[in-house]
Write a protein that binds this DNA or RNA. Structure first.
Lengths: 132, 132
DNA sequence: CGTTACGATTACGCTCACGTCAACTTCCCT
DNA sequence: AGGGAAGTTGACGTGAGCGTAATCGTAACG
């Protein structure tokens, strides 16, 4: 199998992140690039993980949360308890996100009202100006 | 008018925040408690603002964002230039909020898919266990 | 053989929204 | 007068998620 080892630069270009970020993720044990002498080489597995990391971030998970989720993905069929815990974590996040969305929608509606008010105030100014 | 001036303690108890937080908000010009000698006394206006601040935070806005929005809420009918500027700011914020909501909805959908996958994985575990 | 390019490590910096002392002052209660 | 509660102003600490040099190694190009 062509394991398609990639340099840090290729990774950055592919995923739109900086070298610093990838090194940081390695330090945090989110990625495990192999070494060719000094240099990091990222495996197919690292790429899969990075994809999940970036998605996790969009979900609003912390890197530590993500690390635990990732450890799960790689887990054998044994530790079911871990899987269950992780599942619950995700469900919790989902509810948080939905709540946040609902509040956001409320805020948007309120802001729209404020804007209508502001628009009207502006119109009055313009009318006053036109009447001079 | 009974302006119901409140001490910092009363405010903290009412709103579930710490004194540090209220002082911090004053330093950031989000609140403007009056002084009785050394002590801060929070007005009805401060309470209204604090309510909005906390709501804004739940929406995920920065304190600086909130400060600008609050300035808008309090504006009288006079300074048109200010109003116009603020109006534009609000419109921009609205678009940002709507974009954020859309992203959030996408993330929610993705996460739901993941959960379906996880649920299935869990079901398999249970099935395997039952088959022993 | 020099320079450019890419990569490495070390380590300090930064933003945000406060927490956490420390070292007072002021007021009330006994 | 003594003591405690509640307040004040600094000033430094925290944690996440990297940014940003500074300095060094190595390999290829011309």
């Amino acid at each position: 199998m062509t394991d398609q080892l990639m340099t840090i630069r290729q990774m950055c270009d592919d995923f739109g992140v900086t070298p610093r970020t990838l090194r940081f993720y390695e330090a945090k044990e989110l990625l495990f690039p192999v070494r060719e002498g000094q240099k990091r080489l990222f495996t197919r597995r690292d790429r899969a993980r990075l994809k999940l990391i970036l998605r996790g971030k969009r979900f609003g998970f912390s890197l530590e949360d993500i690390r635990q989720l990732l450890d799960m993905y790689g887990m054998g069929d044994q530790q079911q308890a871990q899987l269950t815990r992780t599942f619950e974590l995700a469900v919790k996040r989902l509810h948080e996100m939905e709540a946040q969305r609902d509040e956001l929608n409320e805020a948007i509606d309120e802001l729209k009202e404020q804007l209508a008010w502001g628009e009207q105030a502006l119109a009055k100014f313009h009318a006053a100006k036109a009447a001079e």
